[in-house]
Amino acid sequence: MPLEQGTLRVATWNINSVRLRQGLLATLVHDLDPDVLCLQETKCPDELFPEAAAEALGYAHRAVRGMKGYNGVAILSRLPFRVRHDDPDWCGRGDCRHLGVDLALPDGGTLELHDFYVPAGGDVADRDANPKFAHKLDFLAEITAWQAARGAARRAMLVGDLNIAPLDCDVWSHTQLLDVVSHTPVEVAALSAWQQAGAWVDAVRHFVPPPEKLYTWWSYRAKDWAASDRGRRLDHVWVSGDLAGALRRHVVHRPARSWERGSDHVPVLVELAL
């Protein structure tokens, strides 16, 4: 098993309905073989989550936080963990956008792991005109304040659909998307403040430094997503500074965008040597 070799593979994927796409979980596991799989936008109440499918794929340890039709996060793991029940309910909405666990590692230590699904923010980048955009900014502000109060992250990992493409090279056209929700300056500044508050390291950009283009999401609206390649990097993996030296490998699994009835996001995996 990979864990016996001292590695840990963590993948994140906005699955865009876990019941609709549960069959693709087997394809993901075949291709990437993650030890821990973090899902977002599961759109599924807890009692209807496909537990049997996850169990059959070897994920004996699971935590789900879902609701009917919207949002939802889940963590599937080969390693035992403890759910962090005391983490905040962001904006007091109970809308199933965050799940934290303390993962038990083979060396006897733990890894603090957070799975986030940040609000998309709607279509209008104006706090006053668009309540969804205001919620997104408030959500980010609360997390940043919480992170600042805790200080720099230690032996920790944060993954998920953060719904922001922060760098110019994280979008197909920086100039054309400056006013488009997910790449506006106010969102980029908010994400940067969160990252800096925890001294988080952008694990994927560790392997693929700017100015190389890199995307994890392509709109369903494109007739030929691969030909147009108008993507954005919305899905992220961050590690605490003390784990930066343990980064070994990453995969942005672009072929997943062409899976039959696939999500508009692709899985992202990072491997650590622990």
Rank of each mutant, 00 (worst) to 15 (best):
M1E: 14
P2R: 15
L3P: 00
E4P: 02
E4W: 07
Q5P: 00
Q5R: 08
G6R: 06
G6L: 07
L8A: 14
R9P: 02
V10N: 11
A11Q: 08
I15K: 10
S17T: 10
L20V: 12
A26L: 03
T27H: 15
L28G: 12
V29G: 00
D33T: 11
P34D: 02
D35K: 04
D35F: 11
V36C: 01
V36S: 01
Q40K: 11
Q40W: 10
E41P: 03
T42H: 04
K43F: 00
P45D: 09
F49H: 03
A53V: 15
H61Y: 10
V64Q: 07
G66S: 02
M67G: 07
K68F: 01
A74R: 00
I75E: 06
L79T: 00
L79V: 00
F81N: 03
R82M: 02
R82D: 04
V83Q: 12
V83F: 04
H85E: 15
C91Q: 08
G92Q: 07
G92S: 05
G94F: 04
D95K: 10
C96V: 08
R97W: 06
H98M: 13
L99V: 11
G108Q: 10
L111S: 09
L111C: 12
E112I: 03
H114Q: 13
D115E: 12
Y117N: 11
P119T: 05
D126R: 13
R127Q: 14
D128C: 09
A129C: 07
P131F: 04
F133N: 04
F133K: 01
F133L: 04
F133T: 01
F133I: 00
K136W: 08
K136F: 10
L137D: 03
F139R: 02
L140Y: 06
L140I: 13
A141C: 08
E142N: 09
E142D: 10
I143S: 02
I143Y: 06
T144C: 15
W146N: 08
W146K: 09
A148M: 03
A149E: 15
R150Y: 00
G151M: 11
R154I: 01
A156V: 03
M157A: 13
V159A: 07
G160N: 04
N163P: 05
V181N: 01
T184D: 06
V188I: 14
L191F: 06
Q196A: 15
A197F: 02
H206E: 09
H206M: 05
V208S: 11
V208N: 11
P210W: 03
E212L: 11
E212G: 03
K213W: 06
K213V: 14
K213Q: 13
L214A: 11
W217Y: 14
S219Y: 12
Y220K: 12
Y220G: 12
K223F: 04
K223N: 09
W225A: 14
W225C: 07
S228T: 15
S228D: 12
S228F: 08
G231T: 07
H236M: 12
H236G: 14
V237A: 06
G241D: 09
L243P: 05
A244D: 04
H250G: 01
V251W: 10
V252H: 03
P255E: 09
A256S: 12
R257C: 03
G262M: 05
G262P: 01
S263Y: 00
A273N: 06
L274R: 10
L274W: 15
